[in-house]
Design a protein around this nucleic acid. Structure first.
Lengths: 285, 285
DNA sequence: TAACATTACGTTAGCCGTAACGATA
DNA sequence: TATCGTTACGGCTAACGTAATGTTA
């Protein structure tokens, strides 16, 4: 077996052209490299260099050997990267959320149950996660529909309804409930990204301008001090976070009333048993 | 960079299951392996084993790491093999011959010119060699036709005529020259493999039984003491090696009169200049 | 008690850096 | 004379083997 460090020194020399340049690059001395190159030739039983009195250069075999050496160095680096990545993957739980509320609710639970592990969370739509679960890029996901896939294990873990807060004088404020399409064309305030819901809005309110607020203080300030309608949800309303001076109206569209499902690969169901035992239909409410 | 010897020890442990078995296989001691495995974990910064008081086994990461390690070990072995093979290829001249006489003539010349190099000779048909020249599997070839290929450099290096020796009483012996097809159906003596000529025989004398003699003494003894026709060639006849008591008749078929061409890759023409300068139209006669 | 892994310890092979040397452009 | 590669030398690290220890089936 040829020592990797010899190959590294050899390849660096091939790149640099002189031993002194390679020595500097490798933070070692010229003599060390001289010896290493001799050792490599000896180990291989093959001559790799053309030696003049004060010049060392690769011969034909050496030129090819440098190419081959690159493959070995790459393989070695790959090994290290792959082992580390695998090790890290065991210490990380990657979970995908289709909406922000499930993330808000589940993150502290996950941190409690999987103490010491890194929780890596993402937000996107169901299909994205179902595919990535199968690729082992995610371990868990909270979906808004049961994918009805035998490879995916799911458990219902909550529910959320969407509301809209309107000015008391707004014509729509007098209905017991309205439709998303009724709002089309307006500007509406949003707190944070709304995950899968954005899909519906794109279909039903194509002409609406969403005023996305990343900061909740800004959101509440704007909600209270402006005439813009603003979205809210059962989660926040049930916690008393309603906008003063506004009328909160229910949204009739079925997409504004969604169940949440915690999902993992069926084959990894046991691995996350503690978590599934911990959640139920009232976890996210 | 991860030391390859650590990977070798690690992979051997993964194969053997115990350190002691691996130690025996690697001709080293148990303590050395214990330390090596610890060092590998430390170098990677990753835990690879489940340690009981007197049992060591791979954990999940370790199992994967063992697979990855195999790739690195393979790459390293590949490197060594490829460098050695390339080095050897520089010290070997692989030459293909389409017929035995060119080989007889050229081998001593090659040995003189390329002193110290290994001459590796093969016999087959032109097309085989032309393709293999391009693949660098052969450096030189003696062909019986100019391939008219711009990538192949050729120089005419001789000529050979085929004759047949017949019993004086043979009806064919009275013609000044005969055709191969006249001989079809007979049994004919041959000395050694005849290279490309075998192709013509297969076409023109499909019913002929060739009595191939690998040993020249056997050939001459059988030629003189039997009634079988036997092939000979201008090369041997011009050196006085004719069969006593037989009549030698010329063969009219064009395939029985062939020129020889020494060939190499056009790109390597200069490399073999000395050889090409040394041969000419009268080298093989 | 036999097999196994680990720890302790004294030894040494091998590698490193500094310094000196020789050759070249 | 500045740069480059090689050789010489002294020092030291790091890996080795032997031996001892502790644990399990």
């Amino acid at each position: 077996m040829i020592d990797i460090s010899l190959l590294e020194q050899f390849y660096t020399f091939a790149e640099c052209g002189t031993l002194s340049a390679a020595a500097e690059k490798l933070h070692t001395s010229q003599p060390a490299l001289t010896r290493a190159m001799k050792k490599l030739e000896e180990d291989l039983g093959v001559s790799l260099f053309i030696r003049s009195k004060n010049q060392l250069k690769l011969n034909e075999t050496g030129l090819h050997a440098a190419e081959y050496a690159r493959d070995v160095l790459d393989a070695d680096r790959d090994f290290e990267a792959k082992v580390k990545a695998y090790d890290r993957s065991l210490k990380t739980i990657a979970i995908g959320f289709c909406a922000p509320v499930p993330q808000t609710v589940l993150t502290p639970i996950l941190n409690t149950i999987f103490e010491g592990m890194t929780i890596s969370a993402d937000m996107s739509d169901d299909i994205h996660f179902v595919n990535r679960l199968k690729l082992h890029e995610y371990h868990l996901a909270v979906l808004h529909e049961d994918p009805k896939d035998e490879n995916i294990f799911v458990k219902k873990c909550g529910h959320e309804d969407l509301f809209i807060s309107l000015m008391p004088g707004d014509p729509l404020a007098f209905y017991p409930e309205i439709h998303l399409s009724d709002l089309d064309g307006r500007s509406i305030l949003l707190l944070t990204r709304i995950g899968f819901w954005m899909n519906f809005h794109n279909n039903k309110t194509p002409n609406t301008n969403y005023l996305l607020q990343m900061d909740s203080n800004s959101f509440y300030e704007l909600s209270q001090n402006s005439d813009y309608p603003s979205f809210s949800s059962s989660y926040y309303l049930s916690r008393g976070q309603k906008i003063e001076g506004k009328v909160t109206v229910s949204l009739a569209d079925p997409e504004c009333h969604t169940d949440y499902f915690l999902a993992c690969l069926a084959s990894e169901k046991d691995k996350y048993k503690i978590l599934f035992d911990r959640v139920n239909e009232t976890t996210i409410l």
